[in-house]
């Protein structure tokens, strides 16, 4: 029983059978396990692996005593940005979030969910980050294409408008000259 997902390439190389035949066999094996017993065949991180069924989770957990590690909201935020925008630099993550993300990023690297994938060809050659195979495994994804679809708003920051320096005041009697930049809530 493999301790990591086995790819179709591995299986075809090992069994010397055509891919189609192996896929069929995996499908049959999966159906058989689905019908009976506590084991299932799962497809994730680009391969196939045997795992216990969720229905038996409490029983197995009481035996294995897994180390539960929750991801904080900030770590999830950084992870989502890396997953959808990869390869991405630390500064670019900070720009999207509006706050520093160094701690969250280093924690994700420590948990093997994010890794360095290269350097950006810009001054300073900042490190580019991307997700790992372990990320796919932990989130039960076969590939990055299976990530939930990101709904991008077409309207920027709804409910707010920006008033900029030097803008012509709407009230003609209002004093001209330098004014502070303010963000005002849109009147309903």
């Amino acid at each position: 029983m493999a301790d990591s997902p086995v790819t179709l390439d591995d299986l075809t190389g090992l069994l010397e059978r055509p891919v189609r035949e192996i896929e069929e066999a995996l499908h049959q094996l999966g159906s058989r396990y689905d019908a009976n017993g506590p084991i299932q065949v799962v497809r994730l991180a680009g391969g196939y692996q045997l795992a216990t069924k969720p229905a038996y989770s409490r029983l197995v957990a009481s035996f294995l005593k897994p180390q539960k590690k929750k991801l904080s909201q900030s770590m999830l935020e950084v992870l989502a940005i890396v997953a959808y925008q990869q390869p991405i630099t630390s500064a670019e993550i900070d720009a999207v979030r509006g706050v520093q993300s160094d701690y969250g990023l280093s924690s994700l690297i420590e948990r093997r969910l994010v890794k360095e994938v290269g350097r950006k060809a810009t001054p300073g050659r900042p490190i580019l980050y991307g997700t790992t195979q372990h990320f796919l495994h932990q989130f039960n994804l076969n590939s990055l294409e299976e990530l939930p679809e990101l709904q991008v708003d077409q309207q920027a920051l709804p409910g707010f408008e920006l008033e900029t320096l030097g803008e012509t005041p709407s009230d003609p009697e209002e004093k001209t000259g330098p004014r502070a930049v303010v963000v005002t809530s849109e009147s309903s």
């Binding site: 301790d3 799962v42 692996q49 045997l50 795992a51 216990t52 069924k53 969720p54 989770s57 197995v60 957990a61 294995l64 897994p66 539960k68 991801l71 909201q73 999830l76 935020e77 992870l79 989502a80 940005i81 997953a83 959808y84 932990q138 989130f139 039960n140 994804l141 990530l147 939930p148 679809e149 990101l150 709904q151």
Partner: peptide
């Protein structure tokens, strides 16, 4: 990203119910 973060968080919790 709020919606996908929510979905990823749910997937993370679901993954705790499966053992390899």
């Amino acid at each position: 990203f709020a919606e996908v973060i929510h979905q990823l968080s749910r997937r993370w919790d679901e993954r705790d119910e499966v053992f390899f």
